[in-house]
Design a protein around this nucleic acid. Structure first.
Lengths: 208, 208
DNA sequence: AGATTCATATGACAATTGTAATATTTTCTT
DNA sequence: AAGAAAATATTACAATTGTCATATGAATCT
């Protein structure tokens, strides 16, 4: 199994290399210490698995992975990181990462690599536990900004998506009911929707 | 690593046993051929991992797992099944299964067992690909049945939750608009909601 | 100061929605 | 076939919603 390790902390990447190469059948083709490096080395070596940290200076692991997957759609990226950060998890899932595990469980690395190599997708247990809440709570504001939704509008959207009526939203935001209506009217137009129900649905579909 | 295998097809379970025991460090403590059996054997042996089929006569794997997890909350259940059935996946996730992989990839079993043993959660790639759609489309009907929602009503709920107007739903279901309105009125009362937007929200919150 | 933009508001209107009471039709039961 | 239960429909009404055109006041710019 040919692996490339990416981590901007040389201490980490070398000890990873040691751990991995202590096992039969594992070969570390290269060690990168930045996202850019990772991309370059991936093109050169085309490893079976890319074992990558997320938080790195300049280009982070997620960006690098995204770039790589664009070219090599079958690339297997296993993220190895310190924090189970919601945003990272979401992004990793979106990119189609084959795994997301925490560094602290170093004894998990070999089994995870094996599992990924054999075509599975692996999550650390902490990550798995977070998945449901991540999926249902995290809102990606960027989706809205893309449609030209401004902050106030977004606020209103989130009230609509909690099931409040115009009157209730107005009270909540110290606006007149008419103003709220106007806002919603504009939001609907921007999002090309017809009514508040579709708006709430849109909201829920853009979770994650 | 101590394992119990559960499959009502003896051919499958014995060949699994052979495959697993061919590897160093794996021990198959027992083989069950039904859900009830699995529960009994789990209590007796308390294995590290329960490798279980889902579809079985009488008590299926999911029910058995649920029962077992109730008593042994740390139980590690790895489902090994033929189909990536949406409902099964959801249920497995809910129970807190540590993995869900497909039988056809028999070479994945050992890596998966290792990964689960080391505390990770493993999904076959097909399963992983299905996750997003499963999460956002599959509804657990039981939640609705609890509220006394009948099939027709449920149908309407799902249309509302797609953003259709009463008129559109009526056309879709070959009913009059008034009838649809009546249905919704009753649904709202049953669910103690106020309007279709809250209904859609309810729907999305009861996904999974 | 004058012009412009922005946030908020108003009023009038039509469409949609939710409710309730009652009717009609279909299906099931025996 | 008669009666009960269900599914579907109708009507009328009130409330909410979405749209639009326009107004007001405050903040910003030059």
């Amino acid at each position: 199994m040919k692996i490339i390790i990416v981590d901007d902390d040389i201490l980490v990447s070398t000890s990873l290399k040691t751990i991995i190469e202590a096992n039969e059948g594992f070969e570390v083709l290269a060690v990168a210490n930045s996202g850019e490096d990772a991309i370059k080395l991936y093109h050169e070596h085309q490893p079976d698995i890319l074992l990558m940290d997320i938080r790195m200076e300049k280009m982070n692991g997620l960006q690098a992975a995204e770039e790589i997957v664009k070219t090599f759609s079958h690339a297997k990226v296993l993220f190895l990181t310190t924090f189970a950060d919601d945003e990272y998890i979401i992004k990793a899932l979106k990119i189609g990462a084959k795994g997301y595990i925490l560094k602290q469980h170093y004894n998990c690395i070999i089994p995870a690599l094996n599992a990924v190599y054999s075509g599975q997708v692996v999550f650390g247990e902490e990550i798995m536990n977070k998945l449901p809440s991540v999926m249902s709570n995290q809102v990606n504001k960027k989706n809205y900004q893309d449609f030209g939704i401004i902050d106030k509008e977004f606020q209103i959207i989130s009230f609509v998506s909690k099931g409040l009526s115009n009157k209730e939203i107005a009270k909540e935001l110290y606006l007149s009911e008419g103003t709220v209506r106007n806002y919603i009217s504009i939001i609907l137009e921007k999002l090309e929707l017809r009514d508040r129900t579709q708006l709430a649905i849109f909201y829920f579909n853009h979770l994650l």
